[in-house]
């Protein structure tokens, strides 16, 4: 079957090559040295930075996306606003990469519209206060532009799945608004929200183009480090590069599989 051969040759085999390479010494013997090498300060710092950035951007994306979804679906917003924002989110969640970085440079860069306006109108120099678009929080704000829409899109079915009758049943049984959310609404949504958080985490973790366009190669998250390794073997050990890739795969797999697992669990409830 062509599909299986194609994916085997061009997807599974290359990845397996890296995975096996991660456990080999340069002369081909089995070793754990490469995996242990991930503890090297430069690499460990890189992972730690990636995890922190992905976590922060996923957390902000989850909270804001959830708030927005709640406002649009349960907050009595007009249908056209909801539809417009949903369509926009379909676009924005695909609007990652280089152009997004450009738009944010024009917004929050040193000469960006918001930066300049804040300085001229309010006298607030955000760069003077230590903010930089090309730093951790600058990246987190930029990521939010595709994270929040993605959250809105993936959490909408779950919020729509909260049946009106559950709320009514709770009310008829004497529950207050907060009791309903605490005992029914939040527990029902929890697996979906957690799952979506993990999806957002993985999404941020794999982001490369936006970072490169914003910071060049100065901001060494894991994908950047790997990118440089492929370009110029900056780790001076190809097998260590393989281990770096394997680490990425592992983090992405864990968060994606947990996402799928939690989504399945949530769907079981929402039949």
């Amino acid at each position: 079957m062509p599909y299986l051969s194609f994916t085997f040759i061009f997807l599974i085999a290359p990845v397996s090559y890296l995975v096996i390479g991660a456990f080999q010494s340069p002369d081909g013997r089995f070793t754990f040295d490469n995996m242990a090498g991930l503890a090297n300060p430069q690499i460990a710092a890189s992972y730690w930075l990636s995890i922190r950035l992905s976590f922060a951007s996923a957390l902000i994306g989850t909270v804001t996306g959830l708030l927005l979804a709640h406002a649009l679906i349960l907050g009595g917003m007009p249908v056209w606003i909801r539809r417009a924002l949903t369509t926009f989110s379909g676009v924005a969640s695909n609007f990652a990469g280089v152009p997004l970085a450009f738009a944010f440079i024009a917004t929050l860069g040193r000469l960006g519209l918001v930066t300049v306006t804040m300085k001229d109108l309010l006298g607030i120099n955000i760069y003077g206060m230590g903010f930089s678009l090309f730093s951790f929080w600058g990246l987190a704000i930029t990521y939010l532009y595709f994270q929040m829409p993605l959250m809105l899109l993936v959490i909408t079915p779950a919020i729509e799945g909260l049946k009106k009758e559950w709320r009514e049943a709770a009310e008829s049984l004497g529950a207050s608004d907060s009791q309903y959310w605490r005992l029914v609404g939040a527990p029902v949504l929890a697996p979906s929200v957690l799952g979506c958080f993990l999806l957002l985490f993985a999404n941020a973790f794999g982001t490369l183009a936006t970072v490169i366009a914003l910071t060049g190669s100065n901001f060494s998250v894991v994908p950047i480090l790997l990118f440089q390794q492929i370009r110029g073997n900056v780790l001076y050990n190809p097998n260590l590069g393989y281990a770096l890739a394997l680490g990425m795969i592992l983090i992405m797999s864990v968060s994606n599989f947990l996402y799928l697992f939690l989504r399945q669990r949530a769907e079981r409830w929402q039949k």
Partner: peptide, 19 residues
């Protein structure tokens, strides 16, 4: 298999292919 590319970042994929 069709979902694997969501788990494997493109950097990793191209790394493997180049090697």
């Amino acid at each position: 298999i069709s979902l694997l590319p969501l788990i494997i970042p493109s950097v990793v994929l191209v790394f493997g292919q180049i090697r």
